[in-house]
Amino acid sequence: MTLPVPLTGVVPPLCTPLTREGDVDTRSLEALVERLVEAGVDGLFVLGSTGEAPYLDDARRHTALRTVVTAAAGRLPVLAGVIDMATARVLDHARAAAGLGADALVATAPFYARTHPVEIADHFRRVRAGTGLPLFAYDIPVSVHRKLPAGTVLELAGDGTLAGLKDSSGDDGALRRLLVGLRARGLLDRFTVLTGSELSVDGALLAGAHGVVPGLGNVDPEGYLRLYGHARAGRWSEAAAEQDRLAVLHALTGTGPEEAMGRNASAIGGFKAALHLLGVLDCPATAAPQVPLDDVAVATVRALLTERGLL
Rank of each mutant, 00 (worst) to 15 (best):
L44D: 12
F45K: 06
F45R: 06
V46G: 11
V46P: 09
V46W: 06
L47T: 05
L47P: 01
L47K: 05
G48A: 04
T50H: 03
T50K: 04
P54K: 10
P54M: 10
P54S: 11
Y55F: 14
L56F: 10
L56W: 10
D57C: 09
D58C: 06
D58A: 15
A59K: 08
A59R: 14
A59C: 00
R60T: 03
R60E: 14
R61A: 08
H62K: 13
H62L: 07
A64V: 01
A64Y: 03
A64C: 03
L65F: 04
L65K: 13
R66G: 14
R66Y: 01
V68H: 04
V68N: 04
V68T: 08
V69L: 02
T70N: 09
A73D: 15
A73L: 04
A73G: 07
G74P: 02
R75P: 07
R75C: 07
R75Q: 09
L76V: 11
L76N: 10
V78A: 02
V78D: 00
V78L: 00
L79T: 12
L79S: 06
A80K: 06
G81R: 07
V82D: 07
V82R: 10
V82C: 11
I83Y: 05
D84W: 05
D84A: 15
M85D: 11
A86R: 14
T87H: 02
A88M: 08
V90Y: 01
L91F: 01
D92M: 01
D92P: 00
